[in-house]
Nucleic acid binder design. Structure first.
Length: 394
DNA sequence: TCTGGGGTCCTCGTGCCT
DNA sequence: TCTGAGGCACGAGGACCC
């Protein structure tokens, strides 16, 4: 039995195993032991996640679903049910709450839990037990003195594992791992390091400081620290959102600007609705256009006054689209709101100027949307796009 | 061979202001 | 009045993560 991690900071990283697929297998026991793939095998989707039975065939997250279908034609492809996963996720986080007040949510199925001063291994084991008994899914846990080592520890014992890496063990644990396991080293940086003959964190650690600065620029210190197992990042329970966006990849590329405007209206309306729901406004509106050849451009505009109405956000996005004047077929269109400020952040002036007429209209539209669960009043271009879609689908 | 969606962070170029 | 440096905000793009 290892000594309790009470001398130092103690961080637990919890990560659900093949979360979406596990929820599907739990809800439908017929799927247990079968290759379950979350994603639609036709069209342009990718695999969200897949069960460990599907991984045997080489199927992986983020792989194009058609490729997954070729690798595993007998796989059971399931369209994601995000609402359901959200319910299970909420229940899982309720369990975490029992054990620590300091929880940092990383994603729908993953969290850091600060267990400093406690026996981290015991807490992680209790959480794993509760999640399994109450929710019927398994989670893996890593326990260590800092966040990124805890995360690597949980990765190393998946699925359904628990691993503690003490401060003393950290360096030898890290040295043998591939560099790509360090957070922040993705495919591009990995291939750059490959060409330099650096494949493990241990090899990276031995490089001189000047080398780090040359390769990683301003991020050099962070990578050098990580290679040495140094990470003082606290567990941060809440972060202000920095942007809200929505994008859509079309089933078929679109080359008509008018049709794009219709889709843009829907995206703008959804982004605006989410802003208002979060009681936020944005100062910057941006659009993203991805062409048939996957090249991508972004355009944005910062306003003098923050906005959150459907009409104002659509107006800005439309102006950006018209200025960009895409001449090639478009496969993806997106709208982003950033420079977020609270709805009420504006200092109250001595004489309240009349608020934008769109604010009042937006509030009425939101009431209807909340009542019926979907947008009821649509912007003009929006309606046009929807009508086209309905005609397409008959 | 085909590459989703929703995010964050970083870098670099440019223009404006002092 | 001109010029250059430095700071800053903005815009675009890229890399990365889950």
């Amino acid at each position: 039995m290892v000594a309790p991690e009470t001398d130092y900071r103690c961080i637990i990283h919890i990560d659900a195993d093949a979360f979406f697929a596990s929820v599907e297998q739990r809800d439908n026991p017929d799927l247990k032991g079968k290759p379950v793939i979350i994603g639609f095998p036709h069209g342009r989707g990718v695999v969200s996640t897949c069960s460990y039975e599907a991984r045997v065939y080489g199927v992986r997250s983020a792989m194009p679903a058609v490729q997954a279908y070729r690798l595993c034609p007998n796989g059971i492809f399931i369209k994601p049910r995000m609402e359901r996963y959200k319910q299970v996720s909420d229940a899982m986080f309720d369990i975490f709450d029992r054990y620590s007040p300091v929880i940092e949510k990383l994603s729908i199925d993953e969290a850091f839990i600060d267990a400093s001063g406690e026996d981290g291994v015991q807490i992680a084991a209790a959480i794993r037990r509760d999640v399994k008994h109450e929710l019927g899914i398994t989670v893996s846990a890593g326990v260590s003195y800092c966040k990124f080592v805890a995360k690597l520890a949980s990765d190393s014992c998946k699925p359904d594992g628990l691993r503690r890496v003490s401060r003393e063990e950290a360096q030898s644990f890290l040295d043998n791992l591939p560099v790509s396991r360090l957070p922040g080293i993705g495919p591009k940086t990995k291939s750059k390091l490959d060409t330099l003959g650096i494949s493990t964190i241990g090899a990276l650690r031995q490089m001189p400081e000047t080398w780090f600065v040359r390769v990683f620029g301003k991020s050099a210190k962070r990578f050098q620290d990580m290679a040495r197992g140094i990470d003082n990042e606290p567990v941060t329970p809440w972060r202000e959102p920095k942007s809200v966006s929505e994008e859509n990849t079309f089933e078929k590329d679109i080359d008509s600007t008018e049709a794009l405007k219709g889709h843009l209206a829907i995206l703008a309306q959804n982004v605006a609705f989410r802003l208002r729901k979060a009681r936020l406004k944005c100062r910057t509106v941006g659009i993203k256009i991805r062409f048939h050849n996957f090249s991508t451009i972004t355009r944005e505009h910062t306003l003098s006054e923050p906005v959150s109405s459907d009409a104002e956000i659509f107006h800005e996005a439309k102006a950006l689209l018209e200025a960009a004047a895409p001449e090639k077929p478009v496969r993806l269109l997106g709208v982003t709101a950033k420079g977020l400020v609270p709805e009420t952040s504006r200092q109250a002036p001595l004489f309240e100027p009349p608020e934008s007429p769109w604010d009042d209209i937006s509030r009425s539209m939101d009431r209807l949307r909340n009542k019926y669960g979907k947008p009821v009043v649509l912007l003009g271009s929006c309606l046009r796009s929807r009508t086209e879609k309905e005609q397409d689908t008959g």
